[in-house]
Every structure is written in C-alpha cells, then in structure tokens.
Design a protein around this nucleic acid. Structure first.
Lengths: 342, 342
DNA sequence: TTGAAAGCGTTACCAG
DNA sequence: CTGGTAACGCTTTCAA
C-alpha cells in the first residue's frame, strides 16, 4: 500500500532507477523501446511522481507565491483569476495567501512562501505594511518579486498598477463636463497611496475647471462599506448637499449607496454617485455608478507575465508598468445632466 | 551569496548539523544555552528553512490542494475565503487551481496536486466531470479529500453542501405566499445535480399549492449570465409573461436582469426576480432579489475543518454535511405583493 | 546533551 | 544507450 516510486518500477524491469527517471522524462538518451516499457509499468503500478523530491533536487518548484490583502474582495479575486490564467499557461501553480490587511500576517506569509522555495512572489501589500525588512530577505535570497495594484516604491522590485491620480482626474472631468460643479469626495485615508492619489486627481480636476475646493466636501473615512456609510451620513448631517458623490472605491460606494437609500434620497434623481471600480464588478451596480475601470484580470495577468519573465532572466533594473484605465460612463448620470444642461 | 543552510550555522558554531536542526525546532534535548546561540547565528546569517527538504523527509507538506471551477465566480471566491481562514488557523497553506469547468484541466490539476504531495484535497467538481478514475488514484494514495458545494456521490468521500431541492421549494413557497402564481424558472441544465434539484424544488412547491406546471415557463438554459439573458428573451418572445422569474443562480439572474432592462420592463413593478444566491453577493442586487442564501464562506470553512479532521484521523465512513440555507426576503417584492393581495 | 549515520525520492554527472 | 555514485537540505534514530 506504500506509494510507488521510481525504484519500484526499476526493480520490476531489472534496470536502474536512473534509467527509469530518464525514461519518464523522455530524455533523448534512452531507447524508445525502453521508454515504452517503463511508462507501461509506471501506469500499471499507478506511479505518481513525487515533486517534493524533484523540487529539492532541482531547486525549483514551478510554484508562485501570491499575497493579497483579502481574497473575497472582488478586485483581488479577479486579479487572481488573471494570475492563475497566466501561470497555468506557463506550467506554474499558485500558493495563495491572504494578509487580511495585517502586516504581521503578511510577513509570516511571505516568510512561509520563501521557505517553501516558491520560484517567485506576487504581492499586493497590506494597507498597514511599513516594515520593509522582509523584502530585504527576499532580495538577498534572490527571489523574483513583482508588486501588483499596491506597491512599495524604492525597493527595486518591479510593479504593475494604474495611474490613480490621472484616472481620478479623468473621472471628475467627466462629471464636470456632464454639468455638475458640486462634487463631494468620500476619500480613503491619507496614509495609503491610493487614498492620496485619488484625492489629488479630484483636486486637479477642480482646479483645472476653476471650481472652488470645499474642504467640508472631502470626507476622509476609509475604504470599506462602513466607512462609506458613515462618510455619507456625516456629509448629509452637515449639509449642504452636493450633486454628486465621488467614492474612492467600490467599498465606499456601496456604503454610500446604502446610506443614501436610508435617508430617503434617490439615485440618480436626487444625487449621483461615481466611483473607482472595475468593470466586472460594477456591472452589478451599473447603471447607477460611473466608474473608472481598472481591469483587475489584466493587472493580474500582466503581473504574472512580468514575474515569469524575471524568473527566466533577472532584469538589470526594476520595471514599472502602468496600465490604462477606462472611463465607463453612466447613462443615467449622463441623461440627467443633459436635462439639466439643456 | 548562496542560501544559508543549517550546516552553515553548524560550521560557525563548531557543532553538528543535527544539533542545529534540533535547536531550531526547540527539541527538548538541547540546552537552552545552545538554542539561544544557534538561533542568534541563524538570524544573523539570515537563515531561512527549506521546506522542500523538510517535506521530503517528513512526508508532509502542511499544504492543501483546492480545485474550483472558476475563481472569479463570487461564490467560490467567498468559499476560498472560508477555506483559507480555517486552513491558516491550523497552520496549513493553500495551493489553488481552477478547472474552468473543464474535466481535463481538472484532472491535470488534481494530478499535479497529488504529485506535490498535498496533505489533503478540497474539490468542487466541474460541471462536465464524468471520468472518475482520478478519484480512484486519490483513494489508492490514501489522500484525504472532501467535496464542497458540488460533489460526486458514491465514491466514498465526504462532502459539504446544501439541500438544493428543499431550499428551492422554500423559496418558491415564499413567492407563492406573497401572492404570485405565475412563476417561470430559468433553469440550469439537467446534466448537473443542482440544475435538477433546483427545478425539482420548484415543482414541489407548485404541486403543494396545486398550481399547474407550465412547461413553457421552464427554460433550460444554463448557469451563466448569457444563459440567463437568452433564457429570458426566449420567455419574452413566446409569452405569456409570468409575474416572477426564478433564476437558478445569480449568473442567470444577472443575465435575466440585463434582458429585462433591455426590453423596457421594470423590476419589481413589472416583473419580480428571485434567485438562488448568497448574501455577500446579493446585497449588491438587493433589494431587487429574493434570495436563498447558501453561505459560501461557511461552506468553505466547514469543508476545510472536516478535511483537517480527516487528515488527523481517517474516518470509518464518509460524512455528508448539509448546511442550512436562509431565506432573505425581498422587501419590494413583498410590498408589491401586499398591494396586489390587499 | 550532543553527534554519526541513514534515509526521504529524485536528478546530474560521468563511466562504462 | 545504460547505470553507479553523489548530491539536494533536512530529520529520525540510536549510540556516545
């Protein structure tokens, strides 16, 4: 009942284990005849190769470690979809870990992954990651690593992401061109890159159109549903009400949406909502939201492809890939604006 | 620049590799003094354990292989969330693979996972899986396996899922009690268990209420968005229109939803939609849908916990866990029905 | 309390 | 074309 190994096959055929090993891998220096015999016995005995042994020998695992903050976040689940697509095409497998936005768990996960000797690492850092030394270890051990979506600058690793500031600016420009001037921002937190960038883009757009910035219309709440909910409530209580809410991500948008319904306002008749989101997800809320589409599947794929390239040959310098975002206009917001403008 | 290994630490301290190995693992037969020294040198040298070597020796990998049809399906992404939660609590990691509903890919994935010597397998089989022999291999190799959500009966493996038929019946009962009799079903395909079960529950409910079954109101289309779209269109063209659409899952529901909008009908004023779905996801569509909540996170967790128990000690017989579903009523459907009934 | 020897299953490197 | 030997890094066993 023990597992069959190569030496079992060898014994049956009265040849050496080496011959079996080579035959199984189609080495050119084994006769076709022998190969056939070996393979036949292997399948009859139910031989299954042992990759842990092979990995130890070859110092490769055909395995990529992936670290995301939260796998039930639809952005990441789509990104992982892209990652797995690209990985399986190249014969790699995925060890998936989640940090739950916790830097310590993230540290442990990366540590375990490099102990497993993954061939490469794909990381979207948690919001609170500040300790850098794990990445030093990664560098010292010469393990290829690519950041995706959320990255840490200046460590010398490649990254794949979008230009948050420019995208935010484009989104707000669109809203303004629809005829609105009163735009409030449910912002993330300023400790996080995307929070700062998506606010900066908002400010850019207002400035470009000579619209006064109203600080009471910038609510720094956070990135999840609850933050969006509370953020809108704060806005609502204080007044005056804007015409459009710009949410930093779809977590915040969903919270705002819930709050808006609770206070009895209607979307889009009473108030519009636009948000950073991604197509696959936003089509559920569509047409209530105008979105900036940061295609997560594409981000995942690109990150994986870049990583695989770096596994093949170490690049001289880190690369930084900025993917294009796409503005997906909201028909109802648009219609309303036409009515108003007309 | 080579990786540090235990023997490097041993050389520095002039002790044997065995001592280092034991010290690192806190074996009781090493003096505290020695342990301290070893660990200090280890961290100074930047030692990282090599699990591939350890796994080869111990014949364990602390790793679970997971096979799902599609990771961007929100049901599975939430299930994986639950799986990872339970796994990391027990010190296990996850190798994630996707079959894309393709039996051949599924076969390869399972094969690779057992070659990797995962300690256990969690599988939601693809729709088209018919070839059973891979599971024979799994059984012969004595690898614990638990099916979740979608399972194959009679193979002797444990499974975790819900009672589709009873849940469907409860859902339709609710709709009927809301005052509707004209209920159409966008069904999946009859080749798949859940397709059959969710249809059977629908029939049960109609029979219980002595409502005539209209075959033209049962559209066997499929489980994805496109199927739902085409299914509704077929219904719409043929007429007569029902009052409520019961969709087999939220893929179909989303397609139907899109089609309904395109033909200019309004939900819920012109037509109601109810569907099998899950809470985490359906809140996006809520309150437009009445749903049966099959909690994917819980399914994932339970499956993992069951698997871990079976890894610890092989059970005499396979267990079958049926999780409860919860009816989440739709306020707008309810309101409308009250108007009608009153 | 420490260490020598053996082994986990596979592959690389040479000899035959 | 085939095969002996060593090695991959770690752990287990047992002797010192």
């Amino acid at each position: 009942m023990r597992n069959i190994k190569q030496s079992d096959i060898a014994r049956v055929l009265n040849v050496s284990r080496v011959t079996v090993s080579k035959a199984l891998r189609d080495c050119p220096d084994i006769s076709p005849d022998m190969k056939k015999k070996v393979k036949k016995v292997a399948s009859k005995l139910g031989y299954v190769p042992n990759y842990t042994a092979r990995n130890l020998q070859s110092q490769k695992t055909q395995t990529i470690g992936v670290v995301v903050p939260d796998i039930s976040n639809s952005f990441f689940s789509y990104a992982i979809h892209g990652i797995m697509d690209a990985a399986s095409k190249a014969g790699y497998h995925i060890v998936l870990t989640a940090s739950r936005e916790n830097a310590d768990i993230e540290y442990d996960n990366i540590m375990t992954l490099i102990s497993m000797r993954v061939d490469g690492l794909l990381v979207a850092v948690s919001k609170e990651t500040e300790d850098i030394k794990i990445f030093d270890t990664v560098r010292k051990m010469n393990i290829p690593l690519v950041f995706f979506d959320r990255s840490i600058e200046g460590l010398g690793f490649s990254s794949v992401g979008i230009d948050d500031r420019r995208s935010a600016c484009r989104l707000i420009n669109h809203v303004i061109e629809c005829g609105y001037q009163k735009i409030a921002h449910l912002a993330g937190t300023m400790t996080v890159g995307i929070g700062r960038e998506r606010l900066a883009g908002y400010k850019d757009a207002l400035r470009d159109h000579h619209i006064r910035l109203r600080n009471e219309w910038i609510i720094e709440s956070g990135f999840d549903k609850q933050s969006g909910y509370q953020g809108f409530m704060q806005l609502y209580r204080k007044g005056p009400m804007p015409e459009v809410i710009y949410a930093v991500n779809d977590g915040a948008a969903r919270g705002a949406y819930k709050a808006i319904q609770e206070v009895g306002l209607r979307i889009p008749d009473d108030i519009g909502v636009v948000a950073f989101s991604h197509h696959e997800f936003a089509e559920l809320l569509y047409p209530r939201l105008t979105i900036i589409d940061a295609p997560p599947v594409l981000i995942g794929q690109s990150a994986m492809e870049l990583l695989l390239a770096e596994i093949k040959e170490k690049p001289a310098r880190a690369r930084k890939i900025i993917l294009n975002t796409e503005l997906v206009p909201n028909s109802s917001l648009l219609n309303r604006s036409l009515v108003q403008v007309g």
